[in-house]
Design a protein around this nucleic acid. Sequence first.
DNA 1: CTCTTTGGTTGTATCCTGCAACCAAAGAAG
DNA 2: CTTCTTTGGTTGCAGGATACAACCAAAGAG
Lengths: 150, 150
Amino acid sequence: MPTSTAPPSGTGVRADSVDAIQRELTAFARRARSMASQIHPGLTLVTYTVLDHLHERGGCRGTDLATHFMLDKSTVSRQVASLERLGLVERTADPEDLRGQIIRPSTAGEQLLNDVRARRHQAFLQRLADWSDEDLERFAAYLTQYNDRA
Amino acid sequence: MPTSTAPPSGTGVRADSVDAIQRELTAFARRARSMASQIHPGLTLVTYTVLDHLHERGGCRGTDLATHFMLDKSTVSRQVASLERLGLVERTADPEDLRGQIIRPSTAGEQLLNDVRARRHQAFLQRLADWSDEDLERFAAYLTQYNDRA
DNA sequence: CTCTTTGGTTGTATCCTGCAACCAAAGAAG
DNA sequence: CTTCTTTGGTTGCAGGATACAACCAAAGAG
């Protein structure tokens, strides 16, 4: 039985809007990778988001990264190893659990993160230059609402 | 409404919104791949968008795909070859230029595309189920406006 | 003290991608 | 008409991201 209050879809403004959202988000995702390499050479979309997450959380374990990014733990292990080789993160034993390791951005990592953030912020600012404050706020709220449904 | 720490200046609100948009769009891009595989097994985000673009354009050449997706022509060549092996596209010589080939979705390709589109539409509908029509329209408009700045 | 669970690493395989070298056709220059 | 350059495509090669499976070490349950 149709429990939803939504009328039969397939036609109408609602379906059109959903299709547009789908199309535009897909278009964005397609371009994201090449855009990411423009922001900072040598930093991948994944490595950037990993580094950013480590900063936001003030350090966390590899397992936490894996669950948060829906990646295999082996992938995270290699990514973290790569970031460590680049001197962007540091690992210390978890005092609570000797199996785990707390991963934190190094000083160089924080610095790089700040630089990348500034570049990205500028790029977004430029792109959104002619948006009103109100539209920016609403757009941000919509995106947050959408992603929180994950 | 994202309740921030209420920075008094207008530029503060604006910067917060830009940061939020940046963060949320990045989060979405990060998840796009795993989402794509959920939609249809065996079809990548790239292969899907290629097939979709071929449908929208009613067939085009490999070079057109490469420029549109900002990919190397070798990558496009392999992707198209893969799609052809799967029987999802067909190639015919370009009557205008014997070097080029017009690539079009095959009947099976169109059918698969319809199927994937239906699945995606359902997935998006479900995710956006509790959004009002007005919010959907505005969100779609914002996304379109953002992408059109490319 | 075992047995199971959990955090990480490594081996293997697959896929996507770019760069470079190459081929064939089209177009320009002579 | 004969070169020379440009353009559309393919293939060889290399690098990177990812998943799965096997494995190790520490923690926790019984």
